[in-house]
Write a protein that binds this DNA or RNA. Sequence first.
DNA 1: CGCTTTTGACCCGCGC
DNA 2: GCGCGGGTCAAAAGCG
Length: 430
Amino acid sequence: MENAFDHVILNSFDDQISSVDHPEKRVVSEMDFFAKKNCDKDASRVVLEIKKQSEFQLDHISLDTGLNLLTTNSTVDNNKPPEVANPSTSNYNEIMVVKTEIDQINTENERLRAFLNQINNKCYSLQMHIVSLLNHQQHNPNAQNKMNHVEKEEERQKFLIPRQFIEAGQSSLMDDKDGSNIKDSPQEISMGYKMQKISHEVEHHVSEATMKKARVSVRARSEAHTISDGCQWRKYGQKMAKGNPCPKAYYRCTMGVGCPVRKQVQRCAEDQSVLTTTYEGNHNHPLPPAAMSMASMLLSGSMLSTDDGRMVLPANYMAATLSASAPFPTITLDLTNNSTTPLHRPQPQAAPQLILPPQFQFEHAQNLMQQVLREQFNQFSGVDNSSQEMVDAIARDPHFMAAVASSIIGNNYSNINGGEDKRSLNNYGN
DNA sequence: CGCTTTTGACCCGCGC
DNA sequence: GCGCGGGTCAAAAGCG
């Protein structure tokens, strides 16, 4: 598996090296998410470039040095630093510095992997804890009746959100096709297998219908018909919805044979520049890098691209509203920067919804995530300050949050280089 | 020719 | 039971 950390770090290396060699050529202002790079190739290319440049510089240096040594009349000032006397030495030093940095970051990368593995284990414990709590609730209905409706919903959400985090962590570590992300010991592999097995068991304990029907709704300003999310979709229907002059379009994912994911796209009746896209279901195939990037951007509040190639700026404002209304709990991400436009409320006729307070915005989702990670550590083991900092760093990482988003958008996002353009073999995939 | 889009028909759940 | 509305199907048309 190529994890998000690798992707970031490798691209950063590429940028660093390019800017070292050609500082005028490339200004690194943002991550190029949609560039179709193969990360493994990138890594190899970076290493090869360094190697090539180092060898070239070394040859060059040794040649010069030889000439200097043989020149008896040479007036080389031995007190001068070599990099002043020879500019190529300066380049060589820079390359060596970059190389050292790469080594350091690689080490750090390995450490993070190991730490993620630890978190994975903690998640397993948490899952078991959730299962036991759920069982406890089932066997103690009286205790549950004491809670009012809102409290019940809040309680349910407490389970729902961590579970999505758990799933993200689980799959990002375990859906590793080639096992390249973690150098698993046999014990770790065994543990991973057990966790995967138990994860499936948990699926049966947690309300199946609720999870399958979980939806993610994204509101963004766009003049295009649909926002480009990296997946391939086939339109299978269009209907005029009541109370909205704009038709609602229905799309089905065509990236995998029989992929159950569907999306609905509709313009907002109040503000037709706002496009509401609602995703439902889990992908049964690896997501392409662009879809991963989309997931990342959704949670990092970055840009969205429309299908006409333009970019939409959702501004820095981003509100996440979590509706727990049965039977379709929906997370609505509002990227419109328009507080006057009412959020789209799915299933308006459904039971009273749990609308989280306005302060439940993206950063609070991150805080929640940090809290979940901390609680795991505090509950199941001691945690020192350095680990605590690392927990915070991970929870703040937009790419880790991308993994969380992918747990909503798709199950298997581990193969970041996957997602070959497979056209559906039949028209309807049913 | 194969895939996508269009669009009317059909299905199904819900409220009355 | 009936009507309504949301969602899906599938034949036909469109498109590259």
